[in-house]
Design a protein around this nucleic acid. Structure first.
Length: 826
RNA sequence: GGGCAGGUGGCGGAAUUGGCAGACGCACUAGGCUUAGGACCUAGUUCCUGAAUAAGGAGUGCGGGUUCGAUUCCCGCUCUGCCCA
């Protein structure tokens, strides 16, 4: 009697055994090669979603595979547990953020365990516990000591109704998410981390990241946005001040017919001091500042500016040019001032046209074949003219020479700027790491001494969503004593961006209990870098760049020797259904729990991996899942029906009736081992690995009754089933363990080695050779592999069909490729 | 506007180095088995012409190029998605 496949029972059983026997717990072992397999840790929002299942299933295949290949595998998980949603839940439902978060974690942990992911649970990291976030504070203080954490004025979103600061995600279409009133901008003192100090290394480090997807590197490059150019001073004689502009095109400077400053430029007040329409101008400036914060892009028709009436001197031409304020120059980039070259910059061109400014061309195309289009700027490099002593130079040469001249004459120099800004980490929120700083009336700003860490998030707080951060309203928290003079002082009430937590959590996994330092440098030295990092591409810029920054900082602090935390990043594609990303707002979310209940974790895992390669989009379909469930049933039944071959029998004759069957299955087996191994190890194409397993299963199913008629065939079937179970185990680990046990194995699959193939046996002996005439397939024939090209040619020409088609004519040319084809040209 | 990724049957996808396009799965069709089945078994399924298991033609977004040969390489266009402005 065949036993039925009861996935619920089987999966629970093996999850329990793995946990009890601590199969996936690891220690440093210098004798073995290590493999650190990491998936992006989840935010404990309440429930696991399909994106998580995909992410963790991919990671689990790799982790289990590497373990079977003999690696010492670290495969940890944790929780990105601080953040705004917990606070929102408190505001909306009156649940304390801590309770909400910890409850969510408990539930989601059980969900992950139900999926059978091979995590080292003893290393679980939870960022909302003081044990973890105290080290955020520790690292912050180290940065503060070195001037890499600093405070300055910066803009925040402000809801005038709720009188509170809003996070960007709380601003919906320019309005407050709670009260729908219009969000304004407010300047406040904020904390920053000096990531720009590492701008150059973050960029040059890309060279080591040859196992990152090219497009992710490109995104980071754009984000860092290095531009090489020059700084040039334009003197404003009437107020005796210099306007320093940054330009990447100093070769066009003879065409600079005006200067434009950001409305937020520090010189603005002086520039407009004597303006006849000062009031009107101030109103416009205020409006522009507000708009610049909200708006992402400035379209042509929206470019507005004001003439200050003042003139600046173009240091190259010596000519006075008008000084403008405009909304299309941002204080955040370069120096907050640019020179306007309307002939060679499209934005300047549009601006000049609108305000009737002089347009002076100074660059002509290098080749006379190119005609600059009328009615727009010519932005290409070319040959200088109208440029005094620099006439006739190419743009590239001119840029060098003119920067040198500017430097020699004292009004400029070569310069590099970055688009990358320092990282603003201040959040006026409760559920985050308190920034460990104290303000004393007498002594001023004081860092919290290391021995007073952690500064804990006070439990008792009120969550109204109004009137500033909850922390501000907790006197026991705010009121403290100055660590220097002992007098009364106030605590900083800002908390840290949660990206700080996720910038180094992968260090913490190496020694999660460490209490003297953020992590044990020796253990980190053994495990880092992460050998494979898997996660959604939505974190490709911020999280990955911040993590790289922290890694470099921790290295410079002497705590680690790792330059790049993630030498290999696998960017997983989106999970979609009905053509769009699964999301609550779209209402197309499929709950993994229900699927696990209906089909089991193994079927869900196999389907999610089978439907598309990891880096591509994955489209949900329940029919597809059913198909994978049937595949599992097929394997189950195949093994059930063949269990007798695992028992010694004497009543089977020794000789094989069907040698062809033996050959086919043996070859298929070795080819499958080869393909599954290569697909996992080299390409991460888990979908084709699974399809290879399906093929092997189909073939065994078809041949098993013939094979079992002889002793030799029974041995092969036994080996094939054994290897099939092993190959299957990273994908469907519970099923594999159960079948493994059924076939009489004492050890666990998870502790067994990966099957090995014989390259000789995996080779095809007979090969189909294709015969083409004029590139069209006309016939084919079977022949031994590696047969000489001459023989192929002869054989092809003698095929009856080919002779008929040639009609006695000699081909003009014959191309022969060993093991592939014969191509005739007539 | 710039950068990147992608476009292959009814659907998800395969084709790893320029060499048989459509593996594997879904869905569907016909038949079998069954009291029944969303189970299982057998056969079939890119499109067009054909009674056909005969034979031929077209075919990997569109147009061109390189090549004996292009889903794959090159040029131009187009559409979709992502990122940045």
């Amino acid at each position: 009697m065949k036993e039925a496949y009861n996935f619920e029972e089987i999966e629970k059983k093996w999850q329990k055994i793995w946990e009890e026997r601590k199969i996936f717990e690891v220690k440093e072992d210098p004798a073995r090669p290590k493999f650190y397999c990491l998936e992006m840790y989840p935010y404990p929002s309440g429930r696991i979603h399909m994106g998580h299942v995909r992410n963790y299933s991919i990671g689990d295949v790799i982790a289990r595979f590497k373990k079977m290949r003999g690696f010492n595998v670290l495969h940890p998980i944790g929780w990105d547990a601080l953040g705004l949603p917990a606070e929102n839940a408190a505001i909306k439902h009156g649940i304390h953020p801590k309770k909400w978060t910890l409850d969510n974690i408990d539930y989601m942990r059980s969900q992950l365990k139900r999926l059978g992911i091979s995590y080292s649970w003893s290393r679980e990291v939870n960022t909302c516990l003081p044990d973890y976030y105290r080290w955020n504070q520790w690292i912050f203080l180290k940065m503060f000591e070195q001037g890499l954490a600093y405070r300055r004025m910066s803009w925040v979103n402000w809801c005038p109704q709720c009188r509170t600061v809003l996070a960007n995600e709380q601003v919906v279409a320019g309005r407050c998410w709670r009260c729908d009133s219009e969000v304004s901008q407010k300047k406040m003192e904020q904390w920053f981390l000096k990531i720009t100090a590492y701008a150059d290394e973050l960029l040059s480090g890309h060279e080591k990241l040859n196992k990152w997807p090219e497009h992710v590197l490109q995104m980071q490059k754009n984000w860092i946005g290095k531009s090489e150019g020059a700084l040039v001073n334009f003197k404003v004689p009437s107020i005796n001040k210099n306007i320093e502009v940054f330009t990447t095109r100093i070769d066009t400077i003879y065409g600079a017919t005006f200067v434009v400053l950001s409305v937020e430029h520090p010189l603005t007040p002086e520039l407009i001091a004597g303006h006849p329409e000062k009031e009107k101008l101030l109103a416009w400036i205020k409006k522009t500042i507000a708009e610049n914060r909200v708006r992402k892009e400035i379209k042509e028709e929206e470019k507005t500016g004001y003439d200050t009436g003042l003139k600046a001197i173009n240091p190259f031409t010596g000519q006075p040019v008008p000084v403008f304020l405009a909304n299309y120059v941002l204080m955040d980039y370069g120096t907050g001032a640019v020179m306007g070259v309307p002939a060679h910059d499209q934005r300047d061109y549009e601006f000049a046209t609108k305000y009737n400014l002089l347009i002076t061309p100074v660059i002509k195309p290098a080749s006379p074949d190119i005609n600059p289009l009328a009615g727009q700027a010519f932005e290409e490099y070319g040959i200088l003219f109208n440029s005094g002593e620099f006439d006739g130079l190419k743009s590239e040469q001119a840029m060098e020479k003119m920067a040198a001249v500017a430097e020699a004459r004292g009004f400029g120099c070569k310069s590099v700027t970055y688009r990358l800004r320092d990282w603003g980490i201040s959040r006026q929120r409760y559920w985050g790491t308190p920034i460990p700083v104290i303000y004393c009336e007498k002594c001023g700003l004081q860092p919290v001494p290391y021995d007073q860490l952690p500064v804990e998030i006070p439990y008792r707080a009120e969550f109204t969503g109004e009137e500033g951060s909850p922390l501000e309203k907790i006197p026991e928290f705010v009121n403290t004593t100055c660590p220097k003079c002992g007098g009364p002082a106030r605590r900083e009430t800002d908390t840290m961006d949660t990206f700080v937590d996720s910038s180094w959590y992968f260090f913490r996994y190496c020694s999660p209990q460490e209490s003297k330092l953020p992590f044990d440098p020796e253990k980190v030295d053994y495990w880092l870098p992460v050998d494979l990092y898997i996660g959604g591409v939505e974190h490709a810029i911020l999280h990955l760049i911040y993590s790289r920054f922290f890694t470099k900082y921790l290295r410079d602090l002497g705590l680690s020797r790792t330059d790049e935390p993630f030498p290999h990043y696998l960017a997983q594609g989106m999970v979609t259904k009905d053509g769009s990303a699964m999301s609550k707002s779209k209402g197309n979310v499929v709950d993994p729990d229900e699927m696990v209940k209906a089909y089991g974790a193994d079927a869900l895992r196999i389907f999610i991996l089978f439907a598309s390669p990891p880096e591509k989009e994955f489209a949900w379909s329940e029919e597809g899942l059913e198909g994978c469930y049937r595949f599992i049933l097929k394997i189950w039944n195949l093994v059930e029906e063949s269990l007798d071959v695992f028992r010694a029998r004497t009543d089977v004759s020794g000789e094989l009736d069907n040698a062809g069957s033996y050959q086919r299955v043996n070859k298929k087996l070795h080819q499958t081992i080869r393909k599954v191994t290569d697909d996992i190890e080299q390409r991460f194409h888990l979908n084709t690995a699974i399809s290879a397993l399906m093929e092997l299963t189909n073939s065994l199913k078809k041949e098993k009754d013939i094979l079992r008629q002889s002793q030799k065939g029974r041995e092969l079937l036994k080996k094939a089933l054994t290897d099939l179970i092993l190959l299957l185990s990273p994908f469907a680990p519970h099923l594999a363990e159960e079948l493994w046990q059924k076939t009489g194995q004492a050890a666990l699959v998870a502790e067994t080695g990966w099957p090995v193939y014989d390259p000789e046996l995996a080779k095809e002996e007979m090969i189909t050779i294709v015969v083409q005439i004029n590139g069209k397939l006309r016939d084919k024939f079977e022949i031994e592999a590696e047969t000489d090209e001459e023989i192929l040619k002869e054989k092809a020409l003698n095929l009856p069909r080919i002779r008929e088609l040639l009609g006695g004519k000699q081909p003009k040319k014959i191309v022969c490729v060993k093991n592939k084809l014969v191509s005739l040209v007539v």
